[in-house]
Amino acid sequence: MAPIATTAELHKSGYSTREIHRHCSPAGPWQQLLPGVVLKKPSPPTRLDRLRAVLSYAGQDSVITGADSLARQGAVLPLPRHIHVLAGKNARRAHPWILLERTSRPPAVVNRDGLRLAGPARAALDLARREPNPRAVVEILDAVVDAGLCSPADLHVELRQACRRGSALVRQALCHLYPV
């Protein structure tokens, strides 16, 4: 039994709306993590539970990016409070612990632990673009290369293809660390 389910999936399995609400009540065995997304266990959600819930909430084409994607692939980076997810241009859902970024350029997807993760170069640049501290940008790029997730050349290629918004510090750091 998967610990994360949407209310639509629960309805297909035969649960009524009333049963779902009863199971998600304070005395029930389940909890609602996001609108329309249920964790089918009473214990606090793990980060993996939250990642799965975000993908269910954001839709079939959504992809985890940034620190969570990189950490799941082997980079050692601190995890922020929010979960960064990429979704299609028509995505309209928001939530306080989700950083939803609409994109017209879907990333290459890496499947790990049942999660759809952005490839390392894209995830690193998505994370670094939002970082205002130049030292932190360098640490992100170094962590990805040091973990062997991608090469400096991969980062340069991704940077050329990426949106230029927010990329000035990333461009400077990449050119300084790994000149072409």
Rank of each mutant, 00 (worst) to 15 (best):
A147R: 04
W30N: 01
H23V: 00
S69W: 06
A71L: 02
S16P: 00
G148I: 05
P132G: 03
G66T: 12
Y15F: 15
R52N: 08
I140G: 01
D49N: 15
R81C: 00
R22F: 02
N111S: 14
C175D: 15
T17G: 15
Y178G: 00
I4T: 04
S104T: 13
A67K: 08
L141C: 09
H176A: 13
L99G: 04
L77W: 07
S43C: 05
L177F: 07
R50S: 14
V54L: 12
N133K: 13
D142Y: 10
Q60Y: 08
R92S: 14
P120M: 04
C175Y: 10
A5V: 04
V145N: 03
D68F: 05
G166T: 08
H23Q: 14
V137T: 05
A5N: 04
A5E: 10
A147K: 06
R160Q: 14
I83Q: 05
P179M: 06
A108Y: 00
I98K: 02
L55T: 12
D146I: 03
N111R: 15
S43P: 00
L177M: 14
H95Y: 15
L127G: 02
W97G: 10
V180E: 15
R130S: 14
L155A: 05
T6N: 10
I20P: 09
G114F: 11
A123M: 07
D154G: 06
H21C: 06
L10I: 04
M1V: 11
L55F: 09
L55P: 00
G148H: 02
A123R: 03
G88E: 10
S104N: 11
